[in-house]
Amino acid sequence: MGGRAFKYDDHVDTDVIIPARYCTGFTVEELAPHALEDLDATFVQRVRPGDFIVAGRNFGCGSSRENAPIAIKGAGVACVIAVSFARIFYRNAINIGLPILECADAVAGIEDGDTIRVELAEGAIENVTRGGSWRAAPFPEGIREIIDAGGLAEYVRRRVAAG
């Protein structure tokens, strides 16, 4: 998949990803139009399906609201690449099937607006605009199983169905 990078700093918290004033809603339709509103008011107008968020350390810190990855995914973001993720956001993203990759070198080599290409299965990231390619650390085995099932809900559904 290929798209443009929207680059942000360290510690992008879930309050700016989706402020509490929108958290009386929990559907994609209610949340996606407000993704990142308090961080970058024009993000939602500019982002196109298949684009990427590239960010620094501790992306998604703060509140446990799953509304945050839902808003990002709903806005069309194909994958979030960050130096590191806050742990509840990390869980939530995996659970709802929002692709995330941890790769500090890639973050350092990508500027806002660059066109990048990502192969999720291998964790391969390539900067088409200014060159450079990287490989994100693979997910641990147990997490792969959840990702391969398409998220935790589907994983549980299969487990329950299997008895």
């Binding site: 929990f26 446990s64 609201r65 799953e66 509840i88 869980r91 939530n92 659970n95 709802i96 998220g151 935790l152 809900a153 994983y155 549980v156 487990r159 329950v160």
Partner: peptide, 14 residues
Amino acid sequence: TGIGSTDMAAAWAL
């Protein structure tokens, strides 16, 4: 520890 809503649904189910 804190979890998300899908996590909570899974914990309810399992």
